[in-house]
Simulated scan of single mutants.
Amino acid sequence: MMTITGPRTDTALADTNQHYDLDPEIFGLFLDPSRKYSCGLYRSETDTLADAQINKLRFVAERLGLRGGERLLDVGCGWGSLLLFMAREHACRATGISPAARQHAYISGRARELGVADQVSTWQGHFEEIDLPAGSFDAVTMLGSIVHMPDLTAVFARARALLRRGGTLYVSESCFRNAAAHGAFHRRAGTRFVGETIFGWGDMRPLSDLVRGAEDAGFSIVGLDDLTADYRRTIDDWLTNVRSATDDIERIRPGLTGELERYLEIANAGWGYTTKHYALTCRKTR
């Protein structure tokens, strides 16, 4: 297991990742056991949050067309759920990128516990700045991370450069329903609270912006899935867990429960009306 620090300073990292630098124990109180912090995939009415997150990881593997042993880069790797799953289930050599220092320490520990430390590595820093060899990955994934990256053109171009010919990019992201909704809601109090108070920076663009960014970079769009209902149910489960764990969360950081509740309530309020959640699969065909 290797963790390499990228070029940005600690101050710059904190400016855009304050939410992810919280005590890791907090996330263990309201996420599923793998600490996957993105949309799940509910196959039945009886699926639990844990079921949904395993379903989603299998879905990502299917969209990437994994057959075993691929070189995979997860941008915004969070607490390592995708890295660890792909290493264990598909023998991938999985590399993660995140600016949040605490996430790297957690992933390193879990990789050792699961016996995949030789297959999992992480870089601390920002995707746009980390120096990796061109064409060195079979697959790149971004689950809920491109929302925190200001320059879509640079992000898609970088992802394409890092993929081998025939490689696949998977992006799942929350989006405003269209350009008009983006303009109307982008600077409302609730949207600004989530972007500034919780994360530090974020912008939910319309899906058309993501598609244009991918196409302009030279990708072929090979798949689009609407996961809006699944993300709404995921957030409902997170919110239920936050409320159940109020005492423990407040013990770790007083006042955080209220912030988390407000964030999740705002995030869920517009699903299907002002916001959507999509999975976009792109291929480097030339």
Rank of each mutant, 00 (worst) to 15 (best):
P150D: 07
R187M: 03
A181N: 09
T257V: 15
G135T: 13
R67W: 02
F199W: 12
Y263S: 01
L210P: 04
F219S: 05
I235Y: 00
I130V: 15
K276G: 01
L82E: 03
G6K: 10
D51T: 05
G167Y: 10
Y278N: 08
V147T: 15
A229I: 02
A100L: 06
A184R: 07
I198M: 13
Y263V: 00
F27S: 11
M149H: 07
A180T: 03
A161Q: 15
T153G: 13
R165L: 12
E89V: 01
P150V: 13
A189I: 03
L227M: 11
A180K: 05
F59R: 13
L280S: 01
L57V: 00
F27Q: 11
H19V: 06
P150A: 10
L224E: 05
V171S: 05
L239K: 05
L227Y: 09
T48P: 07
Y170F: 15
A12H: 14
N178D: 15
Q119F: 04
R286C: 01
H148T: 08
F156Q: 03
S44A: 14
G135F: 07
A139D: 05
R8W: 10
I235S: 02
G76T: 10
A159V: 12
E196I: 10
D203T: 09
S44Y: 04
D15G: 15
D216P: 01
T281C: 03
R67P: 02
F127Q: 14
L162I: 10
K284R: 14
E89R: 14
A179I: 02
Y273A: 12
V222D: 00
A87D: 01
R160S: 06
N17Q: 14
F137G: 11
T234V: 04
S44R: 12
G68A: 13
S98V: 08
R233E: 10
M1P: 10
I146M: 07
G40Q: 04
T191V: 04
F30N: 05
A101L: 11
H182W: 01
